[in-house]
Simulated assay, not measured.
Amino acid sequence: MAIIENRDFIVVGQQPWDTPIGSNCKDLALEFSKHNRVLYINAPLDRRTKFQQSHTEGVKKRMRVIKGQEEGLEQIGPNFWVYYPDVINESINWMKPTALFRIFNKINNKRFAKSVKKAIKQLNFKDFILFNDSDMFRSYHLKELLNPSTSIYYSRDNLLATPYWGKHGKHLEPELIKKSNLCVANSVYLANYCKQYNPNSFYVGQGCDFELFKNDDSVKVPESLNAIKKPILGYVGALLAIRLDEHILLHLAQQKPAWSIVLIGPEDDDFKNSKLHEMENVHFLGPQKPETLPAYIKGFDVCLNPQALNPLTIGNYPRKIDEYLAMGKPTLATRTEAVGIFADYVYLAETKEEYVSLAEKALAENSETLANERIAFAKTHTWEKNAEEIYKAIQTVE
């Protein structure tokens, strides 16, 4: 078993620790901390966010740290610290991808790094490993400014497909991948993308929280779901038009009016205005607390991942499929390169018509034996295993 022990890890990325939704970066940081010291760096506050979200507790807390009214370094576990930088970065993404943007981005990076060095000094971190969760702008220069023993770029989403990240990222991300000591990715598709710029790029898989996603007697189906007619085909997650194919859901609901389609999660404007809201057999239950999601999944007869096919989604590792399978549920998803590893345990559709026929098959042939096989497969995707693969990649390069 590959393992790295008694080292210092510094983790930077896009997901602040105080954001309630989970992320790969958070889970991996916790896994690293089982054998190493970990400093999790929240992204610095930027000037636009300071003004636009000044009423939120997140911004208020950061301003207290910046003003010296509150300590920015917090220990939240035996080997785990979270740091709130005491600086404000300039909001520069509006600038054109020119030399001027790079100058201002370097200024932001230097400001950020100067603050991070305070935490490094306070904790006496030495010979540390820098783990960068796709923070291609704010952390572009951190390898040079912080001088880690090893710098790792973590790719878990094709962010360049979005306008915000693509504008400058189409230049900066390949450069950052190239100058990192190694890159790790949670899908084969993204690992191959990274290999175009850095031969030390590795597919390391993905983890799942099996303490939360378990189908036993302690998990009770919510009354709101029990009141809905069966069979229930359900989806849990953000309802975003850029990631989900609304036409698949409409087709299922139209072709099978006796089935109930249940959608759980926050909606973007496209979904709020969707014809799905007009259909009697489609039920929007809204966003739910993360700890309650297994209870809803338990009440589904078939779990759905009707992914839209576009540059943003095509290489994504579908974390929710592991969560569905961990509960033994029949799962129906759109076929992509990244989903191919699930082919023996998930019903994979290429058209909206196949969604209907495969849903029928999933309902008809479900059994305890199949449920147990799904659970066993999902349990090969642990955060411990994910971290081991990352350790193995580090040891290959160091």
Rank of each mutant, 00 (worst) to 15 (best):
P266T: 03
L348F: 07
I242R: 13
A349Q: 12
F300A: 02
V302H: 11
T336F: 03
D344I: 01
H277P: 09
V282Y: 05
P330E: 07
L325T: 01
P290I: 02
L263W: 07
E291R: 03
V302E: 13
A238Q: 11
P318K: 12
C303T: 14
H283C: 00
A238F: 14
H283A: 02
H277D: 05
K329F: 04
Q288W: 10
L304T: 04
I314R: 14
G315Q: 11
T313I: 06
T313K: 07
P266D: 07
L249W: 08
G328N: 10
V236R: 03
E280H: 09
N281V: 05
A253S: 11
I261H: 00
N273L: 05
G315V: 13
N305F: 15
K298R: 13
E223T: 02
A241D: 14
G286D: 12
Q254G: 07
Y317P: 05
M327Q: 15
L252M: 15
L225T: 01
P294T: 09
P266G: 05
G286R: 09
T313H: 05
E291P: 01
V262Y: 03
P257Y: 14
E337P: 00
I228M: 05
V221W: 01
E223R: 04
Y296T: 00
T331Y: 12
W259H: 02
L233A: 04
V302Q: 12
Q255N: 11
T313S: 12
Y324A: 01
R319D: 11
L244Q: 12
T313L: 07
A343F: 08
H277C: 06
V282G: 00
L332V: 14
L252F: 05
I248V: 14
S260K: 06
K230H: 13
A333V: 13
